[in-house]
């Protein structure tokens, strides 16, 4: 576009842009800062912006065995649900993208509609089913719930990536004798690897941050980090510096994933409606 705006406009934009960026990021920054303070510095008034940083909180968090148990649960549940979800969704998205029938569109929309069902509407039966089948507070149980609740998003996102692959490539493979499985494994997956990777990352992000099912269906045994952090909400949990350190460790990997894939995530988050 030709120069529509002058230099003063750039400065003005930079000012507004950076102000909003700093305001939005400030709470995270403040938590990061608190995680390097001593417990006393963390609650001092006036709040300290400059202080001698300490790593004792991170050391303390690392010494707590239960932190690792929760972190491991988060990792196992997010990765488990993501891999299981991809395994179920890739064939479905392949079929929908390359062999559409009259009903494919309705089928995809129906999948989307299951996502609209508010979780709380089925809280009671899920709780009772989990209790009766012994899945309450197990990693398997939470993996099942995460997989199913993210499945529509995963299918939709993969579908939108697969649709960009010309069918001719797969057909050439078919001519050479590749069946559906081989076509997916040898052609489709390598071709759409970046798309599949960002789908996987979105799924990991959503599972990692999920806080309804994980708070209601798990306790000490299978609880992920969201539940660990929530247990600090009680008044006696006033170890703010340690809580900040634990929170920092809990959100850091996801923040990095999110930043790396922000542009592709839009597609998954809007079911392909905005690219």
């Amino acid at each position: 576009m030709a120069k529509i705006r002058g230099k003063s406009s750039t400065i003005w934009r930079g000012g507004v842009g950076w102000t909003s960026a700093l305001v939005m990021f400030f709470p995270i920054f403040w938590m990061l800062l608190a995680s390097f303070k001593t417990e006393i510095d963390a609650v001092t008034t006036p709040p300290l912006l400059f202080f001698t940083p300490t790593f004792e909180n991170f050391a303390a968090v690392n010494q707590r065995a239960d932190y690792f148990a929760y972190a491991w649960n988060s990792l196992a549940e997010s990765l488990g649900a993501t891999l299981l979800g991809l395994a179920i969704a890739v064939p479905a998205a392949y079929a929908a993208a390359f062999f559409p029938t009259k009903r494919t569109k309705d089928l995809l929309l129906w999948m989307l509609s299951t996502k609209m069902l508010p979780a709380v509407g089925v809280l009671v039966p899920m709780y009772l089913l989990f209790r009766d089948t012994g899945l309450l507070d197990t990693r398997t149980g939470l993996i099942i719930v995460f997989t199913l609740s993210n499945l529509p998003i995963v299918v939709w996102m993969l579908y939108s990536f697969f649709k960009e692959v010309p069918y001719e490539i797969l057909e050439a493979g078919r001519m050479d004798g590749a069946r559906a499985g081989a076509q997916i494994r040898l052609l489709l997956i390598p071709l759409t690897l970046p798309g599949i990777a960002s789908t996987a990352l979105l799924s990991v992000i959503l599972c990692w941050n999920e806080a309804f099912w994980s708070l209601n269906l798990t306790a000490a045994k299978a609880g992920p980090l969201t539940a660990f952090i929530a247990s600090f909400s009680s008044p006696e949990g006033l170890f703010w510096a340690k809580l900040s350190a634990a929170s920092t460790l809990a959100i850091a990997p996801i923040l990095v994933f999110g930043w790396l894939t922000q542009r592709q995530l839009v597609r998954g988050l809007t079911f392909g409606a905005v690219k």
């Binding site: 969201t226 952090i229 909400s233 930043w259």
Partner: peptide, 9 residues
């Protein structure tokens, strides 16, 4: 960034 912070945190 705040979008990627878990709700409890």
């Amino acid at each position: 960034a705040p979008f990627f912070v878990m709700p409890t945190v």
